Simulated scan of single mutants.
Amino acid sequence: MGIEDFAAPERTNMHRLTLRAGLYRAFPQALAESGVSWGECYHADFGDGVLVLVPADYPKAVFSELVPSALAASLAEHNRSSQPSERIRLRLVLHAGEVSYDAHGTTGCALVHAFRLLNSGVLKKAMAYSGGDLALIASAWYREEIIRHSPLSRPDRYHPVVVQEKETTARAWIRIVGPDESRHGGPWRDDRALG
């Protein structure tokens, strides 16, 4: 996950520390409310965001059914009491796959794919267009295998896109969680991704 415009010139280092503190409060809280223990997850800090890998014994549907609303509520709580430069708008990717660990951290095709989706221009456009605090992007696999079969995941709120990032061209699905969630896409939506 990554914080939108973390390096914006109007943000000072003090603002960035507040953003990071808010993120590290909001996400573990959202996981706990969804029945997932932060302490059981692998996490690596990236300055403007964090990589969180959840043990395979947790049901994957939890991350599309429960975590989005819990996280949106945690972000809204943080943002209500923060000045504009300290408000968090967050991009989050939902994907699953094999990960390899070594003494330095993690690697694997699944991680490469997840980061391409997270850093894609289409997700950044969707976030900029929306008024929500949370933009989710689900890989085609995650949408097909998990979200589509789960009414609680709100599959009707995900919109198809084509991600073109570095060497990756892939279908994905975006959901904006927030007050304008009922909007059906925006200029970033690409119905060709359905074909």
Rank of each mutant, 00 (worst) to 15 (best):
142 Y>Q: 06
127 M>D: 05
15 H>I: 05
9 P>C: 08
52 V>G: 01
3 I>A: 01
189 R>S: 13
119 N>D: 15
183 R>I: 05
9 P>F: 08
173 W>F: 09
20 R>K: 13
164 Q>F: 06
25 R>L: 12
34 S>D: 05
74 S>Y: 04
87 R>H: 09
129 Y>G: 09
47 G>N: 07
44 A>I: 01
73 A>N: 13
138 A>I: 00
188 W>E: 07
35 G>I: 14
11 R>Y: 00
89 R>K: 13
104 H>I: 11
172 A>Y: 04
17 L>R: 10
20 R>E: 06
44 A>Y: 02
191 D>K: 10
60 K>H: 14
146 I>T: 05
39 G>K: 12
40 E>A: 14
33 E>M: 10
109 C>W: 15
80 R>I: 09
82 S>Q: 10
16 R>F: 05
30 A>P: 02
133 D>M: 02
63 F>C: 05
144 E>A: 15
121 G>W: 10
81 S>G: 09
101 Y>L: 07
101 Y>R: 09
163 V>P: 02
175 R>Y: 04
109 C>P: 10
183 R>G: 08
62 V>T: 13
167 E>W: 12
36 V>Q: 00
65 E>I: 08
47 G>F: 07
117 L>S: 01
31 L>R: 04
110 A>D: 00
108 G>T: 06
137 I>C: 04
26 A>Q: 06
61 A>T: 15
16 R>A: 04
80 R>Y: 13
121 G>H: 13
166 K>N: 11
66 L>R: 12
55 P>V: 07
137 I>V: 07
126 A>N: 08
48 D>T: 08
173 W>I: 04
112 V>Q: 09
3 I>Y: 00
93 V>L: 10
62 V>E: 00
184 H>M: 13
111 L>N: 03
71 L>C: 03
72 A>T: 10
31 L>G: 01
169 T>F: 12
123 L>V: 01
75 L>K: 02
66 L>D: 10
36 V>G: 03
11 R>E: 02
106 T>H: 09
132 G>H: 03
105 G>I: 04
110 A>N: 01
107 T>V: 12
65 E>C: 15
164 Q>R: 14
91 R>T: 05
153 S>G: 11
143 R>H: 15
76 A>P: 03
140 A>R: 08
40 E>F: 05
149 H>V: 13
143 R>F: 15
61 A>D: 15
13 N>L: 13
106 T>E: 10
142 Y>H: 08
61 A>G: 11
78 H>P: 02
12 T>C: 08
140 A>Q: 13
185 G>Q: 06
180 D>T: 14
103 A>V: 10
187 P>H: 14
171 R>H: 12
33 E>R: 11
153 S>Y: 08
178 G>D: 01
63 F>V: 07
134 L>N: 02
99 V>G: 03
1 M>S: 12
138 A>E: 04
41 C>I: 05
178 G>C: 00
120 S>L: 00
34 S>Q: 02
112 V>F: 09
17 L>P: 00
172 A>G: 07
54 V>K: 04
145 E>M: 14
37 S>A: 15
108 G>A: 06
80 R>N: 14
95 H>G: 00
149 H>D: 14
192 R>L: 08
131 G>I: 06
55 P>W: 11
111 L>H: 05
93 V>C: 14
147 I>R: 02
78 H>N: 04
63 F>R: 03
79 N>H: 13
74 S>E: 12
59 P>M: 09
166 K>G: 08
183 R>P: 03
164 Q>P: 06
4 E>D: 12
